[in-house]
Design a protein around this nucleic acid. Structure first.
Length: 480
DNA sequence: ATGTTC
């Protein structure tokens, strides 16, 4: 069945697409991205539309693609009284997300490539990366529980940053509902040695520069200007979040039966938000989210140290403040307008970024005139984007927008087609230094393996669910 | 994404 094109950037999946749909689907795309989509993504969007208590639309962002149960790039909100919560709507890497750190340095300060190399080497040594990578700190059983319940507040107490950092993080780096007694011992065991590590796959740490400004006013509010040196950190909750997801998927399968919820796909296992199982998952997921924020905070601390060592200056003097830190995989209790009335809902964002608009009480005061910063990483050879949240996003997408470029080649395919050493050489000629923990990751993550980040950012901008603020280009890349 | 199928 054909989808209905509502306007240049919105496609509608009618309720007749599949039996049992309670709401329509709405997908944010352009013609090119629409052509590139497989049918299985539409099926997943339709499946989510069948879940109890879903509000308004089953949504998909421009970077949507097939995922576990819910598609990546999927957004769905459920009524807080009779709706459901689903681990598949959050994803395995709970609070996989991105942090953008600014500096008052400029592109010129690393024009000397030996300087850039020195910086990358220092970061590579100071921030553990790669599959199964372990952090530099050792937590005991009490400490891991504190990390899970306090998130970045724990990190600040331990000296990894300042109170000012807290203000520049979604939820101030702490989900209050977190309760470590709902996280399994095996999840904690995996999480303990990994706190403060980057991980592998699409996770990265980049030194970037501001290549272009699209909105001077918003850029000024964010403290962003042309040629400025930036650091972007993309990582999540490592093995801990993965284990929490696996644990609760199993528990949710039983709950789905227990509460007699009809689901069109087993991977959509869920429970009523107000049930014992639903509440337990939310508390555990919140722990995973806090761990991920603490993880990005420790990494920030070690990046600051690396800059201090190389530039022989304090990080405060170098203006190394957090612009913002956003979650890409999370479920949140939020208030949105539905049928003209304020309503409490659980918003699932799986591969989607919160994009709250101007004057929202949950965004930092300094950003309220223009809306929250939205950080969208691209591939290591092209660019990443900084955008701002909008009133239209509040109205249309429960305050959400895209989260990245999305893969176009599978890892296996990319490995067959490209050679890491060749990709590395080519990028170096373009002025981008890449360091990786493993041999294959550069080929797997090569620019050709990703969709066009420009198209994704432009669909957000054109449709109005986030506005472009600036483009960031990579200079130095650390991969797992 | 992930001690890449405890």
């Amino acid at each position: 069945m054909e989808l209905k094109k509502i306007n240049e950037n919105v496609w509608e999946l009618p309720e007749t697409y599949k039996q049992g749909m309670k709401v329509k689907g709405n997908i944010y795309l352009n013609d090119e991205l629409y052509e590139g989509l497989q049918k299985d993504v539409f099926e997943q969007i339709a499946n989510v539309a069948c879940l109890p208590g879903i509000q308004k639309y089953s949504l998909a962002m421009p970077d949507c693609h097939y995922g576990y149960g819910f598609c990546i790039g999927g957004v769905a909100a459920f009524d807080e009284r009779y709706g459901v919560i689903s681990p598949g709507g959050v994803g395995f890497d709970i609070n996989c997300g991105v942090r953008l750190i600014k500096t008052n340095l400029s592109k010129k300060d690393v024009e000397d490539k030996t300087k850039l190399k020195e910086l990358l080497n220092e970061i590579f040594t100071n921030v553990p990366s790669g599959l199964g990578s372990k952090g530099k700190i050792r937590l005991d059983n009490n400490q891991i529980d504190t990390v899970l319940e306090e998130g970045v507040e724990w990190a600040i107490k331990e000296g990894y940053g300042t109170k000012k950092d807290l203000e520049r993080i979604e939820e101030n780096g702490r989900m209050k509902e977190a309760d470590a007694s709902f996280v399994s011992e095996s999840a904690k065991k995996r999480g303990k040695p990994q706190l403060g590590s980057l991980g592998s796959g699409n996770h990265f740490l980049e030194i970037q520069y501001v290549d272009e400004i699209f909105n001077e006013e918003t850029a000024k509010v964010y403290g962003v200007e042309k040629d400025q040196l930036m650091i972007m950190v993309h990582t999540g909750s490592r093995g801990l979040g993965h284990q929490i997801c696996a644990d609760y998927l199993r528990r949710m399968e039983n709950a789905t039966k227990k509460y007699n919820i009809k689901i069109p796909d087993r991977q959509l296992a869920c429970a009523p938000i107000n049930s014992e199982e639903g509440e337990a998952y939310f508390k555990a997921m919140s722990c995973g989210a806090n761990y991920a924020w603490a993880n990005r905070q420790l990494i920030t601390h070690w990046v600051r140290e690396a800059f201090e060592k190389v530039f022989k200056n304090s990080y405060e003097n170098m203006g190394m403040e957090i612009v913002y830190d956003v979650a890409h995989n999370i479920a949140k209790k939020e208030t949105h307008i539905v049928d003209g009335k304020e309503k409490s809902v659980i918003v699932h964002r799986k591969g989607a970024t919160r994009a709250f608009g101007p004057n929202h009480s949950e965004i930092p005061e300094i950003y309220r005139p223009v809306g929250q910063p939205v950080i969208i990483p691209g591939d290591m050879g092209t660019a990443s984007y900084l955008l701002s949240g909008t009133e239209l996003a509040m109205e249309k997408t429960f305050g959400s927008t895209a989260h990245g470029a999305g893969r176009t080649l599978s890892r296996v395919k990319a490995l067959q087609m490209y050679k890491s050493s060749e990709v590395q050489e080519r990028l170096e000629k373009e002025g981008i230094l890449v360091m990786a923990d493993s041999k294959g990751v550069i080929a797997e993550e090569c620019p050709e393996a990703y969709k066009d980040i420009e198209a994704v950012a432009n669909v957000c901008d054109n449709s109005g669910i986030a506005l472009k603020v600036s483009r960031l280009k990579p200079l130095g890349v650390v991969k797992g």
